[in-house]
């Protein structure tokens, strides 16, 4: 059986699409996401004690089905659950795979290292084969197949609920989400100070976007860590990323490479980020950004 773990997350549909290359896939669905059109057979996990996420219980549900290949989304939960599966049975886990093909008993695969700035070609043998699919490696595409959904109740005991979500705190209303914003205005060391971000905030507001920062900026405490764009922060995928005073270290590029277009405002025409940009304005962001804001205001934005 080729099993794909499906969580309430769009990356799960990418993982389902990815898994179809191995043959007929069954979806193991946690939550209420619709997988219609993606696979012929889906099992919706139903269990009185699974009203909240519990990593080892999810792992046990996977193991109970004794799959030969398990695919999961490359998310916090996908990685965590498959790591538990892998640890339980002593099998390897290939994380953040972007390409894979079957080669007799083995899988030939390509996976991300360094957040995707380096790739590893590897060979995975043994059974079961466990892998997570890197977010945005492929687009989610239904195959148009008719999907039969049935309930599945795994056999779970107290030992599977030692760790589970006890409560949640919902996001504050009106917060612009960095990972789903259409425009992101990012600042780097060139912004110069915490106060220097005020004008970036203003520009983001006029464009209905969110503000982000490089790792330098969050390490200096100019922005909270939740605003970090990079390997150890958010991966953004806006229509436009406006990078102000950002040099473009690998750590940062990995976080913004999902952006459709990049506009760079930088003093240094030779900064690595300029080579990744669609448009560049060379000069002092403290003069340029206010001028853009003024121009937008003049145009009634």
């Amino acid at each position: 059986m080729i099993l794909c773990l499906v969580d309430n997350d769009p990356v799960s549909l990418e993982a389902l699409t990815f898994a179809r290359r191995f043959g007929e896939v069954e979806a193991l669905v946690f939550g209420d996401i619709d997988v219609g059109g993606y696979v012929a057979r889906a099992r919706r996990v139903v269990h009185a004690r699974l009203d909240e996420y519990a990593p080892t219980a999810w792992a046990q549900a996977v193991l109970e089905l004794e799959p030969e290949i398990v695919v999961a989304p490359g998310t916090d939960r996908g990685h965590e659950v498959l790591a538990h599966v892998a640890a339980r049975i002593g099998a390897p886990l290939a994380a953040n795979v972007i390409d894979a093909s079957v080669d007799s008993e083995a899988l030939q695969l390509t996976r991300q290292r360094w957040g995707g700035s380096l790739l590893e070609e590897a060979r995975l043998t043994g059974t079961p084969k466990l892998l997570t699919v890197a977010p945005h490696a492929i687009d989610a595409e239904p195959s148009g197949i008719t999907t039969t959904v049935e309930d599945f109740t795994p056999t779970l005991g107290d030992e599977h609920f030692r760790v589970r979500v006890m409560r949640r705190e919902e996001p504050a209303a009106g917060t612009a989400r960095l990972d789903s914003a259409r425009v992101v205005v990012g600042g780097g060391r060139g912004v110069g100070s915490k106060e220097g971000f005020a004008v970036l905030e203003e520009l983001a507001k006029l464009l209905g976007g969110a503000v982000g920062g490089s790792r330098v900026v969050t390490n200096l405490g100019w922005r909270p860590h939740s605003d970090q764009v990079g390997q150890t922060g958010a991966r953004i995928a806006p229509d436009l990323y406006i990078a102000c005073g950002v040099s473009g270290a690998i750590q940062h590029i990995v976080g913004c490479k999902g952006a459709k277009r990049i506009l760079v405002i930088n003093k240094d025409q030779n900064a690595p980020i300029v080579a990744r940009a669609d448009w560049a304005v060379i000069g002092d962001l403290h003069e340029i950004v206010p001028a853009i804001v003024a121009e937008l205001r003049k145009n009634g934005a």
Binding site: A277, I282, G283, I288
Partner: peptide
């Protein structure tokens, strides 16, 4: 990417 330089300084606004 092909970078289009829109200008230097505030005049590029």
């Amino acid at each position: 990417t092909h970078v289009e330089v829109l200008g230097a300084g505030a005049d590029a606004a």
